[in-house]
């Protein structure tokens, strides 16, 4: 690792100021950034820790919306969102392993937008909103591609809001070495339609599978999606699975999620 300074602000305003320094970068749970720094894939000169910012921690639920502070750990979400939005708590409780969940945060996950990360699928399927220090960004406008988001330089994810669906399920096919999904699908059933978000599959990162959404909005059953095939042409192909295999898994995970909701 190259060396860097560490700043420990206790308010969002101080963090924003600290991030204005040259080559400054936020550090949240460090569960992605620290391994990246060890591999010398990044060389910030200042890390601005968000860990001590109380106003970015915690969970609240009201009027059909769950709001989670950007520096809230996966473990806290798994525990505290279980009543308000069980499918989201279940997603958080299956990220990585217990030690990763004790440090890793929702803000870090959503800012990083790893093409195989869990939260982006939850945020997109739940028609969520990413809240930053300057604005609110609808999920549909936020996730722009692999490791790409609508965030500007120095902008901090301070909270993430989720609309609570009538029913939802996150189906994750584990890549057992990394503990990330090989492919995972989040299905959320709202009164006005169904949203289906897929992670781990596309070279463009998380996406909505609109054919499945249309079919499920008309008929929420496994049969409604049984004949659908996701397009494998722009899917990730690596030693863990070909694009065609991932496209197949998208269908299987979607059917399983629907079956779990209807069970």
């Amino acid at each position: 690792m190259y060396n860097f300074d560490v700043e420990m602000p206790s308010t969002i305003a101080d963090a924003v100021t600290a991030l204005a320094r040259d080559e400054a970068q936020p550090l949240s749970g460090g569960q992605t950034l620290i391994p990246t720094l060890k591999a010398r894939l990044a060389a910030p000169s200042v890390l601005v820790s968000l860990h001590g910012i109380a106003e970015m921690k915690g969970v609240s639920a009201q009027d059909g919306t769950v709001t989670i502070g950007g520096a809230t750990t996966h473990a806290t979400v798994a525990g505290e969102v279980a009543d308000a939005y069980p499918a989201l708590a279940s997603l958080a409780g299956r990220i990585g392993d217990p030690a990763v969940r004790n440090r890793g945060t929702i803000g870090g996950s959503v800012a990083n937008n790893d093409p195989s990360a869990c939260y982006p699928a939850g945020v997109l399927a739940s028609n969520g909103t990413v809240v930053t220090n300057t604005r609110e960004i609808a999920a549909d406008d936020y996730f722009l591609g692999m490791f790409e988001t609508a965030l500007e330089e120095g902008e901090i994810v301070t909270a993430v809001k989720f609309k609570i669906p009538e029913a939802a399920h996150y189906e994750k096919h584990l890549q057992p070495a990394s503990r990330f999904p090989l492919v995972a699908v989040f299905v959320a059933k709202f009164a006005d339609g169904v949203r289906v978000a897929v992670t781990g599959a596309s070279e463009n990162g998380v996406f909505r599978w609109t054919e499945a959404e249309t079919a499920l909005s008309a008929d929420f059953s496994v049969e409604a999606v049984a004949g659908l095939k996701a397009d494998g042409s722009s899917m990730i192909s690596d030693l863990h699975g070909s694009g065609a295999y991932r496209a197949h898994l998208v269908g299987v995970m979607t059917k399983r999620a629907v079956a779990a909701i209807n069970a």
Binding site: V6, Q31, I34, D97, P98, N102, R103
Partner: peptide
């Protein structure tokens, strides 16, 4: 950050001490 040989408790919670800065 995958093997867990470095797990310690920080304020009672299991964490990977290889994936946390000493200043934290």
């Amino acid at each position: 950050s995958q093997c867990g040989a470095c797990v310690v408790h920080v304020n009672g919670e299991a964490v990977k001490s290889c994936t946390m800065l000493a200043v934290e």
